[in-house]
Protein backbone atom coordinates (compact mmCIF):
# COMPACT_ATOMS: atom_id res chain seq x y z
CA UNK A 1 0.00 0.00 0.00
CA UNK A 2 1.20 3.52 -0.64
CA UNK A 3 1.97 5.38 2.55
CA UNK A 4 1.63 9.02 3.55
CA UNK A 5 4.78 10.92 4.40
CA UNK A 6 5.38 11.69 8.07
CA UNK A 7 3.22 14.55 9.25
CA UNK A 8 1.72 16.34 12.19
CA UNK A 9 -2.05 16.65 12.41
CA UNK A 10 -3.75 19.64 14.02
CA UNK A 11 -7.46 19.61 14.85
CA UNK A 12 -8.78 23.15 15.36
CA UNK A 13 -12.36 23.70 16.58
CA UNK A 14 -13.10 27.12 15.10
CA UNK A 15 -12.38 28.93 11.87
CA UNK A 16 -10.28 31.40 13.81
CA UNK A 17 -8.18 28.58 15.29
CA UNK A 18 -7.82 27.00 11.88
CA UNK A 19 -6.63 30.27 10.37
CA UNK A 20 -4.18 30.74 13.23
CA UNK A 21 -2.84 27.22 12.85
CA UNK A 22 -2.43 27.78 9.13
CA UNK A 23 -0.54 31.01 9.69
CA UNK A 24 1.70 29.29 12.26
CA UNK A 25 2.47 26.40 9.97
CA UNK A 26 3.58 28.69 7.16
CA UNK A 27 4.62 26.92 3.95
CA UNK A 28 4.73 23.58 5.79
CA UNK A 29 0.97 23.59 6.40
CA UNK A 30 -2.08 22.57 4.43
CA UNK A 31 -5.79 22.38 5.12
CA UNK A 32 -7.33 18.96 5.03
CA UNK A 33 -11.04 18.76 4.26
CA UNK A 34 -12.30 15.44 2.85
CA UNK A 35 -8.78 14.55 1.80
CA UNK A 36 -9.91 12.93 -1.44
CA UNK A 37 -7.55 15.10 -3.44
CA UNK A 38 -4.86 15.99 -0.95
CA UNK A 39 -4.19 12.56 0.56
CA UNK A 40 -3.67 10.67 -2.70
CA UNK A 41 -1.44 13.50 -3.86
CA UNK A 42 0.56 13.20 -0.67
CA UNK A 43 0.94 9.46 -1.09
CA UNK A 44 2.45 10.16 -4.47
CA UNK A 45 4.55 12.97 -2.95
CA UNK A 46 3.09 15.56 -5.30
CA UNK A 47 2.34 17.59 -2.21
CA UNK A 48 4.31 17.08 0.99
CA UNK A 49 2.96 19.36 3.71
CA UNK A 50 4.36 18.45 7.12
CA UNK A 51 1.43 19.84 9.07
CA UNK A 52 -2.15 19.05 8.21
CA UNK A 53 -4.84 21.24 9.65
CA UNK A 54 -8.00 19.18 9.72
CA UNK A 55 -11.25 21.00 9.00
CA UNK A 56 -13.51 18.11 9.96
CA UNK A 57 -14.17 19.38 13.52
CA UNK A 58 -14.29 23.06 12.68
CA UNK A 59 -17.60 24.70 13.53
CA UNK A 60 -19.20 27.12 11.14
CA UNK A 61 -18.02 25.56 7.90
CA UNK A 62 -21.25 23.76 7.18
CA UNK A 63 -23.81 26.53 6.83
CA UNK A 64 -26.53 25.81 4.36
CA UNK A 65 -29.00 28.65 3.83
CA UNK A 66 -31.44 28.77 0.99
CA UNK A 67 -33.67 31.80 0.54
CA UNK A 68 -33.76 33.97 -2.53
CA UNK A 69 -30.12 33.09 -2.86
CA UNK A 70 -27.96 30.47 -1.18
CA UNK A 71 -25.02 30.44 1.16
CA UNK A 72 -23.04 27.22 1.37
CA UNK A 73 -20.31 26.35 3.86
CA UNK A 74 -17.03 25.11 2.43
CA UNK A 75 -17.21 22.08 4.69
CA UNK A 76 -20.41 20.67 3.19
CA UNK A 77 -19.82 17.32 1.60
CA UNK A 78 -20.81 16.80 -2.00
CA UNK A 79 -23.32 14.16 -0.91
CA UNK A 80 -24.91 16.59 1.53
CA UNK A 81 -25.38 19.06 -1.28
CA UNK A 82 -26.94 16.39 -3.50
CA UNK A 83 -29.32 15.29 -0.79
CA UNK A 84 -30.64 18.84 -0.44
CA UNK A 85 -33.58 18.63 -2.83
CA UNK A 86 -34.48 22.31 -2.54
CA UNK A 87 -30.94 23.41 -3.31
CA UNK A 88 -30.74 21.06 -6.28
CA UNK A 89 -34.08 22.29 -7.63
CA UNK A 90 -33.06 25.93 -7.26
CA UNK A 91 -29.71 25.42 -9.04
CA UNK A 92 -30.05 22.46 -11.41
CA UNK A 93 -26.62 23.15 -12.91
CA UNK A 94 -25.07 22.84 -9.49
CA UNK A 95 -26.74 19.51 -8.96
CA UNK A 96 -25.44 18.32 -12.33
CA UNK A 97 -21.89 19.42 -11.55
CA UNK A 98 -21.80 17.90 -8.09
CA UNK A 99 -23.41 14.67 -9.22
CA UNK A 100 -20.76 14.27 -11.89
CA UNK A 101 -17.88 14.35 -9.45
CA UNK A 102 -16.02 11.05 -9.05
CA UNK A 103 -18.07 8.35 -7.26
CA UNK A 104 -20.57 8.09 -4.39
CA UNK A 105 -18.00 7.05 -1.74
CA UNK A 106 -15.71 9.91 -2.72
CA UNK A 107 -18.65 12.32 -2.69
CA UNK A 108 -19.39 11.25 0.86
CA UNK A 109 -15.94 12.50 1.84
CA UNK A 110 -15.20 15.31 -0.62
CA UNK A 111 -16.28 18.84 0.22
CA UNK A 112 -17.29 22.00 -1.58
CA UNK A 113 -14.20 23.86 -0.34
CA UNK A 114 -11.87 21.06 -1.33
CA UNK A 115 -13.43 20.89 -4.75
CA UNK A 116 -13.06 24.61 -5.36
CA UNK A 117 -9.43 24.48 -4.21
CA UNK A 118 -8.66 21.23 -6.04
CA UNK A 119 -5.08 21.01 -7.23
CA UNK A 120 -4.61 21.35 -10.97
CA UNK A 121 -4.01 18.08 -12.78
CA UNK A 122 -1.70 16.76 -15.47
CA UNK A 123 -0.75 13.32 -16.78
CA UNK A 124 2.89 14.05 -16.01
CA UNK A 125 2.13 15.19 -12.48
CA UNK A 126 -0.59 12.93 -11.09
CA UNK A 127 1.86 10.06 -10.85
CA UNK A 128 3.85 8.39 -8.11
CA UNK A 129 7.20 9.69 -6.96
CA UNK A 130 8.90 6.75 -8.69
CA UNK A 131 7.14 7.43 -11.96
CA UNK A 132 8.01 11.11 -11.85
CA UNK A 133 11.59 10.17 -11.10
CA UNK A 134 11.57 8.23 -14.36
CA UNK A 135 10.79 11.43 -16.30
CA UNK A 136 13.09 13.49 -14.08
CA UNK A 137 10.10 15.36 -12.68
CA UNK A 138 8.53 18.51 -14.13
CA UNK A 139 8.17 22.17 -13.40
CA UNK A 140 5.16 21.82 -11.16
CA UNK A 141 7.01 19.71 -8.63
CA UNK A 142 10.73 19.00 -8.21
CA UNK A 143 11.67 19.53 -11.87
CA UNK A 144 12.73 22.21 -14.30
CA UNK A 145 10.85 21.48 -17.49
CA UNK A 146 7.22 21.38 -18.52
CA UNK A 147 6.91 18.16 -20.53
CA UNK A 148 3.63 19.25 -22.07
CA UNK A 149 5.16 22.38 -23.55
CA UNK A 150 8.94 22.11 -23.10
CA UNK A 151 9.60 25.58 -24.49
CA UNK A 152 7.18 27.19 -22.08
CA UNK A 153 8.30 28.90 -18.89
CA UNK A 154 5.06 28.03 -17.10
CA UNK A 155 3.05 25.02 -16.01
CA UNK A 156 -0.14 24.17 -17.92
CA UNK A 157 -1.70 21.76 -15.46
CA UNK A 158 -5.44 21.63 -15.90
CA UNK A 159 -8.13 23.11 -13.70
CA UNK A 160 -10.24 19.98 -13.24
CA UNK A 161 -12.79 20.91 -10.62
CA UNK A 162 -16.36 20.40 -11.74
CA UNK A 163 -17.77 23.07 -9.49
CA UNK A 164 -15.26 25.81 -10.26
CA UNK A 165 -16.56 26.58 -13.79
CA UNK A 166 -20.11 26.51 -12.52
CA UNK A 167 -19.38 28.93 -9.68
CA UNK A 168 -17.66 31.27 -12.11
CA UNK A 169 -20.62 31.06 -14.49
CA UNK A 170 -23.04 31.77 -11.68
CA UNK A 171 -21.00 34.74 -10.55
CA UNK A 172 -20.81 33.24 -7.06
CA UNK A 173 -18.77 34.97 -4.37
CA UNK A 174 -16.42 33.22 -1.99
CA UNK A 175 -15.34 34.25 1.49
CA UNK A 176 -11.76 33.78 2.62
CA UNK A 177 -10.74 34.16 6.23
CA UNK A 178 -7.28 34.52 7.71
CA UNK A 179 -5.85 35.46 11.08
CA UNK A 180 -5.84 39.04 9.74
CA UNK A 181 -9.50 39.12 8.81
CA UNK A 182 -12.00 38.26 6.16
CA UNK A 183 -12.42 39.14 2.50
CA UNK A 184 -14.93 38.32 -0.15
CA UNK A 185 -14.23 37.96 -3.83
CA UNK A 186 -15.87 36.81 -7.01
CA UNK A 187 -15.30 33.11 -7.76
CA UNK A 188 -13.74 34.19 -11.02
CA UNK A 189 -11.09 36.13 -9.11
CA UNK A 190 -10.23 33.09 -6.98
CA UNK A 191 -8.61 31.41 -9.98
CA UNK A 192 -5.35 32.26 -11.70
CA UNK A 193 -4.20 31.04 -15.11
CA UNK A 194 -1.14 29.24 -13.83
CA UNK A 195 -0.78 25.51 -13.23
CA UNK A 196 1.28 26.03 -10.10
CA UNK A 197 -0.12 29.14 -8.41
CA UNK A 198 -3.66 28.39 -9.53
CA UNK A 199 -5.48 30.18 -6.69
CA UNK A 200 -5.38 33.79 -5.59
CA UNK A 201 -6.08 32.50 -2.10
CA UNK A 202 -3.21 33.48 0.19
CA UNK A 203 -1.56 30.52 1.92
CA UNK A 204 -2.93 31.55 5.32
CA UNK A 205 -6.56 31.86 4.21
CA UNK A 206 -9.42 29.45 4.80
CA UNK A 207 -12.23 29.39 2.30
CA UNK A 208 -15.28 29.48 4.53
CA UNK A 209 -18.32 29.84 2.34
CA UNK A 210 -19.76 30.49 -1.04
CA UNK A 211 -22.71 32.74 -1.85
CA UNK A 212 -24.74 31.96 -4.92
CA UNK A 213 -26.83 34.55 -6.80
CA UNK A 214 -30.65 34.64 -6.50
CA UNK A 215 -32.14 31.64 -8.26
CA UNK A 216 -35.39 33.18 -9.44
CA UNK A 217 -35.23 33.48 -13.22
CA UNK A 218 -31.82 31.86 -13.36
CA UNK A 219 -31.16 29.21 -15.96
CA UNK A 220 -28.00 27.25 -15.39
CA UNK A 221 -26.53 24.01 -16.59
CA UNK A 222 -23.32 22.03 -16.60
CA UNK A 223 -22.12 19.53 -19.18
CA UNK A 224 -19.05 17.42 -18.75
CA UNK A 225 -17.11 15.38 -21.22
CA UNK A 226 -15.26 12.35 -19.94
CA UNK A 227 -14.70 8.78 -20.92
CA UNK A 228 -16.81 6.96 -18.38
CA UNK A 229 -20.00 7.59 -16.47
CA UNK A 230 -18.20 7.66 -13.13
CA UNK A 231 -14.77 8.33 -11.60
CA UNK A 232 -13.43 10.50 -14.37
CA UNK A 233 -12.40 14.10 -14.14
CA UNK A 234 -13.63 16.31 -16.96
CA UNK A 235 -11.54 16.56 -20.12
CA UNK A 236 -13.79 19.41 -21.17
CA UNK A 237 -16.79 20.97 -19.51
CA UNK A 238 -19.22 23.80 -20.06
CA UNK A 239 -21.01 25.77 -17.39
CA UNK A 240 -23.64 28.22 -18.57
CA UNK A 241 -25.82 30.61 -16.62
CA UNK A 242 -28.42 32.81 -18.29
CA UNK A 243 -31.18 35.19 -17.41
CA UNK A 244 -33.81 35.89 -20.06
CA UNK A 245 -36.12 38.85 -20.47
CA UNK A 246 -39.19 36.72 -20.04
CA UNK A 247 -40.32 33.30 -18.92
CA UNK A 248 -40.11 31.51 -22.21
CA UNK A 249 -37.09 29.95 -23.79
CA UNK A 250 -37.48 32.15 -26.85
CA UNK A 251 -37.26 35.41 -24.89
CA UNK A 252 -34.19 37.58 -25.48
CA UNK A 253 -31.16 37.01 -23.30
CA UNK A 254 -30.57 39.62 -20.62
CA UNK A 255 -27.39 38.22 -19.14
CA UNK A 256 -25.21 35.28 -20.13
CA UNK A 257 -22.09 33.75 -18.69
CA UNK A 258 -20.40 30.84 -20.43
CA UNK A 259 -17.43 29.14 -18.84
CA UNK A 260 -15.20 26.33 -20.11
CA UNK A 261 -13.65 23.89 -17.68
CA UNK A 262 -10.63 21.62 -18.09
CA UNK A 263 -9.19 23.51 -21.05
CA UNK A 264 -6.62 25.52 -19.12
CA UNK A 265 -5.20 26.13 -15.70
CA UNK A 266 -8.30 28.07 -14.66
CA UNK A 267 -11.98 28.08 -15.58
CA UNK A 268 -12.10 30.08 -18.81
CA UNK A 269 -14.85 32.70 -18.93
CA UNK A 270 -16.03 33.23 -22.51
CA UNK A 271 -17.04 36.85 -22.05
CA UNK A 272 -17.27 37.67 -25.74
CA UNK A 273 -19.50 34.68 -26.39
CA UNK A 274 -21.76 35.73 -23.53
CA UNK A 275 -21.96 39.25 -24.89
CA UNK A 276 -22.91 37.90 -28.33
CA UNK A 277 -26.06 36.43 -26.84
CA UNK A 278 -27.27 39.45 -24.93
CA UNK A 279 -30.34 41.08 -26.39
CA UNK A 280 -31.08 38.17 -28.74
CA UNK A 281 -33.29 35.16 -28.32
CA UNK A 282 -31.49 31.80 -28.25
CA UNK A 283 -31.90 31.16 -31.95
CA UNK A 284 -29.83 28.49 -33.66
CA UNK A 285 -27.83 31.27 -35.25
CA UNK A 286 -27.10 32.98 -31.93
CA UNK A 287 -26.16 29.65 -30.39
CA UNK A 288 -23.83 28.83 -33.24
CA UNK A 289 -22.10 32.19 -33.05
CA UNK A 290 -21.69 32.01 -29.30
CA UNK A 291 -20.48 28.43 -29.44
CA UNK A 292 -17.91 29.30 -32.09
CA UNK A 293 -16.67 32.29 -30.12
CA UNK A 294 -16.40 30.28 -26.92
CA UNK A 295 -14.85 27.25 -28.58
CA UNK A 296 -12.01 29.43 -29.85
CA UNK A 297 -10.92 29.81 -26.26
CA UNK A 298 -10.58 26.05 -25.81
CA UNK A 299 -6.86 25.45 -26.26
CA UNK A 300 -6.38 22.15 -24.49
CA UNK A 301 -2.92 20.60 -24.28
CA UNK A 302 -2.02 16.94 -24.37
CA UNK A 303 -2.06 16.31 -20.65
CA UNK A 304 -5.43 14.73 -19.90
CA UNK A 305 -7.26 11.68 -21.13
CA UNK A 306 -8.31 11.53 -24.81
CA UNK A 307 -6.74 12.70 -28.01
CA UNK A 308 -6.10 16.40 -27.98
CA UNK A 309 -7.63 17.23 -31.35
CA UNK A 310 -10.83 15.43 -30.52
CA UNK A 311 -11.20 17.25 -27.21
CA UNK A 312 -10.80 20.56 -28.97
CA UNK A 313 -13.34 19.64 -31.62
CA UNK A 314 -15.89 18.75 -28.99
CA UNK A 315 -15.97 22.24 -27.47
CA UNK A 316 -18.35 23.76 -30.03
CA UNK A 317 -20.95 20.97 -29.90
CA UNK A 318 -20.80 20.83 -26.10
CA UNK A 319 -21.35 24.58 -25.72
CA UNK A 320 -24.18 24.56 -28.22
CA UNK A 321 -25.78 21.63 -26.43
CA UNK A 322 -25.66 23.52 -23.15
CA UNK A 323 -27.33 26.56 -24.67
CA UNK A 324 -30.03 24.51 -26.34
CA UNK A 325 -30.75 22.85 -23.07
CA UNK A 326 -31.13 26.26 -21.42
CA UNK A 327 -33.49 27.30 -24.21
CA UNK A 328 -35.72 24.49 -23.05
CA UNK A 329 -34.95 21.89 -25.70
CA UNK A 330 -34.55 19.20 -23.09
CA UNK A 331 -31.52 17.00 -22.58
CA UNK A 332 -28.80 17.27 -25.23
CA UNK A 333 -29.15 14.92 -28.17
CA UNK A 334 -25.52 13.90 -28.60
CA UNK A 335 -24.49 10.43 -27.65
CA UNK A 336 -21.38 11.60 -25.87
CA UNK A 337 -23.38 13.72 -23.50
CA UNK A 338 -24.63 10.58 -21.81
CA UNK A 339 -21.31 10.93 -20.01
CA UNK A 340 -22.52 14.18 -18.53
CA UNK A 341 -25.21 12.28 -16.70
CA UNK A 342 -27.67 13.95 -19.00
CA UNK A 343 -28.99 10.94 -20.75
CA UNK A 344 -29.08 7.32 -19.88
CA UNK A 345 -28.57 6.64 -16.24
CA UNK A 346 -28.20 9.84 -14.27
CA UNK A 347 -24.88 9.74 -12.52
CA UNK A 348 -26.36 12.02 -9.91
CA UNK A 349 -28.39 9.50 -7.98
CA UNK A 350 -26.73 9.44 -4.60
Amino acid sequence: MMRLPRLRYVAPRTIREAAAALADAGPEGALLAGGTDLLPNMKRRQQVPRILIGLRGVQGLRVRELGEAARLGAGLTLSEMLRDAALCAAYPGLRRAVASISTPPLRNMGTLGGNLCLDTRCNYYNQSLEWRKAIDFCLKKDGTICWVAPASPRCWAVSSSDMAPLMVALGARVTLQSAQGERELAAEALYVDDGIAYLSRRPDEVLTDVVLPPHAGLRCTYLKLRRRGAFDFPVLSVAAALRLDGDHGDAPVREARLVLGAVGSHPVLAAEAGALLVGRPLSEEAIREAAEAAARLAKPLDNTDYALGWRKRMAGPLIAAALRELRGDGPPPHGELARAGVRGRPSGAC
Binding site: N123, N126, R228, F231, D232, D305
Partner: peptide
Amino acid sequence: LEYKSPTCLE
Protein backbone atom coordinates in the same frame (compact mmCIF):
# COMPACT_ATOMS: atom_id res chain seq x y z
CA LEU B 1 -8.18 6.16 -12.59
CA GLU B 2 -6.33 6.90 -15.81
CA TYR B 3 -6.04 3.42 -17.35
CA LYS B 4 -9.57 3.51 -18.67
CA SER B 5 -11.54 0.36 -18.17
CA PRO B 6 -15.34 0.37 -18.29
CA THR B 7 -17.38 0.74 -15.12
CA CYS B 8 -20.74 -0.88 -14.53
CA LEU B 9 -22.29 2.28 -15.97
CA GLU B 10 -20.77 1.44 -19.36
